[in-house]
Design a protein around this nucleic acid. Structure first.
Length: 483
DNA sequence: ATTAGGG
DNA sequence: CCCTAAT
């Protein structure tokens, strides 16, 4: 292990009888079954204020680890505080900060001597080389973030952070360690006697959005971040295996068959939440991984570089119930940065202490913003929506929102309106053309029924549903003509 | 802040 | 989902 020693090695026997399940299981055991209970921030003071988190601090680092020094932990490397501003509202000033994080799994020891004064340049490097690609895009969408976020607050509860737990030690990882972990050290794991060693370089945590009162203490900030992270990693997570950017769903095929044993540097893992409720089958498809840029380098070595990424906390089908983590608005990213097998171009020009690196052209229209992570509506959500629309109509989305999605912070009335639009469309096309988790036909029937029912010409905004289920698009047309 | 629609 | 003109 080098300084970054942030690797989780996984051995998997490559026998014909073996299948991916074992690999997934290994990852689960080695990585997922950890309970993190503390967050460390390199803040000097325990009183949060804008002054404590200077704007130029693009490289604040956080470390999250569990109590077992020997177990794995990961470091949160806040590579960039994307936005940090204060604004008044409802009598108190809130601090709004958005930052991106990159997490790295690493062996716990040596998280001691952290020197906040030497982390800047290093962090900047890592940032530049690992997030650049995705940043451009993020920035372009920054504008609307703030506007969007406001909506989140609409029907949510107070944003104060509860002061509960305590601990707040400060063992920060060495900046160097964090930085170097970004570098993709190709290791020569020999593929001996049917065994293949996989090295997971790191898992990236999607972007987190945390909002809390300016008067919050660092302690509460830590807890909030902790909650945000555990919300993503804490629940039931499953491991997904990606090869060439494509998800391998068949757990029965052997590693050899998939080519994992070969020098497949395009192999990747992803953490995905489980979907207890709905999804009887496949979890409501996760965001497409189009972010897997084709790897250029053709390092032909028996090494297998794993590019692991954490999926957004698709609370999706968990519906409203799982939306408890509202305190810390988690709006993760769908695009997971790839610390990929791409050989990092070592920064020649040691921009060293470049305090505010990505500025120029970037700052222009930058700021926050990140297209919201896609949260496909679950069947139950659709049902709730239909139910509400049936009684409220198609022009009172705010009411619909309050009625059926009051606790779903990620569903704005605009979302509901849009969803209804797509539902109407979905119900109007053949089942073969529909995508995503199939919506029960009876629900679609109700959609069309409600749609026509609340159609402008339809005189009385009657109450309950009562229109006979529409069976086909043709029928709908009939109704239209029928008027 | 909401609606209503196009992108 | 996002972006916005119009309320």
């Amino acid at each position: 292990m080098d300084t970054n020693g942030a690797e989780v090695q996984i051995d998997a026997v490559e026998k014909p009888s073996e299948d991916l399940t074992e690999v997934k299981s290994c990852v689960n055991k080695r990585v997922l079954n950890k309970s993190y209970n503390s967050v460390h921030l390199p803040f000097y003071s325990d009183h949060v204020s804008s002054a404590c988190i200077p704007r130029h601090r693009n490289n604040v680092k956080m470390g999250i680890r569990d109590d077992d020094e020997n177990s794995y932990s990961f470091n949160h490397n806040v590579t960039k505080i994307r936005a940090f501003r204060l604004h008044s509202r409802a009598g108190y000033r809130r601090i709004r900060k958005i930052f991106t994080t990159t997490k790295h799994w690493k062996s716990a020891p040596k998280l001691k001597d952290y020197d906040p004064s030497n982390n800047t340049s290093l962090g900047v490097k890592s940032f530049d080389h690992n997030r650049k690609s995705i940043y451009m895009r993020k920035r372009s969408q920054a504008e609307s973030a703030s506007k969007r976020r406001k909506l989140f607050h609409h029907s949510s509860k107070p944003d104060y952070v509860q002061e509960t737990s305590s601990e707040s030690i400060s063992n920060l990882p060495k900046a160097k360690a964090v930085t170097s972990s970004f570098i993709n050290h190709k290791r020569s794991f020999q593929s001996k006697d049917g065994h293949v060693t996989l090295s997971i370089k790191s898992f990236n945590v999607p972007e987190l959005y945390i909002e809390m009162p300016e008067t919050s203490t660092v302690g509460s900030l830590k807890r909030t971040v902790m909650e945000a992270v555990t919300a993503i990693l804490g629940g039931e997570l499953h491991v997904g295996v990606l090869l060439q950017g494509k998800k391998i769903r068949d757990d029965s095929i052997t590693l050899k068959q998939t080519g994992i044993s070969l020098n497949s540097d395009t192999l990747g893992f992803m953490l995905e939440p489980s979907f207890p409720q709905d999804s009887q089958k496949e979890p409501p498809l996760l965001p497409p991984y189009d972010n897997h840029e084709p790897l250029s380098s053709s390092l032909a070595s028996p090494i297998i570089n794993l590019d692991c990424s954490v999926d957004p906390p698709l609370a999706t089908s968990l519906d409203h119930q799982l939306e408890n983590n509202q305190e810390s608005k988690i709006a993760s990213t769908e695009e997971i940065v790839d610390t990929k097998a791409i050989v990092p171009v070592e920064p020649l020009n040691a921009e060293a202490l470049s305090i505010v690196p990505l500025n120029h052209n970037a700052s222009k229209r930058s700021e926050l913003s990140q297209r919201r992570t896609r949260r496909p509506f679950s069947v139950s959500e659709v049902e709730a929506l239909v139910e509400a629309v049936e009684t409220l109509g198609t022009g009172r989305w705010r009411d619909v929102k309050n009625r059926a999605f009051d606790d779903a912070n990620h569903r704005t009335y605009v979302d509901l309106k849009d969803k209804w639009k797509t539902l109407v469309h979905t119900a109007s096309i053949s089942p073969q053309q529909r995508r995503g988790e199939p919506v029960p036909q009876d629900l679609l029937d109700r959609v069309l029924a409600a749609h026509s029912m609340w159609s402008p010409h339809q005189s009385k905004p009657h109450g309950k549903h009562q229109t006979e289920p529409v069976q086909t698009p043709a029928f709908k047309v009939c109704l239209e003509f029928e008027r």
